[in-house]
Amino acid sequence: MSARQEHGPKPSESRVPALDAQLDALYQPQSFTRRAVASMLQARYPVAALLFLTLIALCAAFAPQLAPKDPNRIEIFDTLKPPLTYDRDGELEYVLGTDSTGRDVLSRVIYGARISFFVGLAAVGLGGGIGTILGLTAGYLGGRTDDVIMRLADIQLAYPFILFAIMILTILGEGVLNLVLVLGIGQWVTYARIARAETLVQREREFVEAVRALGATEWRIMFRTILPNILTPLIVIASFNVAGVILSEASLSFLGLGVPESVPTWGAMLANSRNQLLSGSWWLAIFPGLAIMITVVSLNILGDWLRDFLDPRLRGSGQGL
């Protein structure tokens, strides 16, 4: 009752109880979470995607507890065992087989989730942060600052990402943080462009004028007034971007540019599988690839749903996917 009062007077009291009930339902204010859950259940796919992602995230978090074996343990007598290999006591020993040095594929796939998740989230955080700040600054200050930042963006766009990554990673050497750095820098332009465009719109709005009239500093206007109002499209882009970064991370690891050999990653597992393909060791190529695909599909489906839920306007703008 009180909830309804908050939302103004009750709509027309019709004489049709069924219609009244419907109108009541329409006027029932719903919490953000409840609307999100309802919309997700209605769309169905995002629920499955969320389940898969939770599963993979759990793998990443509890890899040491979940993995049946040490992912780096070399068993020279158990090389290239196919999936579902039993040991002498009739126990299932290698569920997904072993690689050319006898390392357990299942354990490596489970550990691989760690790098993919960490790098995906960290690089998007870094790139999104840098891009948003630069885009906001360019859009708000305009003039020379805008020119410099946007020319930098042009240069970055003209630099084929893979070349950039090869250059920087060869020079910095391998390592998780270097990978995050390169992938993060690779993403900033997207965020900068969107943040700039949105800022150009927002800075002309009346509430910005009002805050300025109240004597707020430029700094405060940018980060406390405008930023919260441009976040939605950026969050939507970020959700797709994690998927894209995970794919890029896999490519770089595949090229041998990512992390040291001792850290299991899906991309590096695929790189090692290449030499075993001709001898028919299919499991080495299939399982890490499936892991990547399930993760990325789930993120893409969730991103699609998030976009429709938060900001349907972005549909078809070519952003994100």
Binding site: S251, L270, L277, V297, D304
Partner: peptide
């Protein structure tokens, strides 16, 4: 289309080699 966007190109290449090549 969503599935196609979620597969690394190099993995597809490996799958093609495995299936159509080997």
């Amino acid at each position: 289309a969503i599935l196609g966007q979620s597969m690394p190109s190099f993995w597809l290449g490996l799958m093609f080699i495995l299936f159509f090549g080997v």
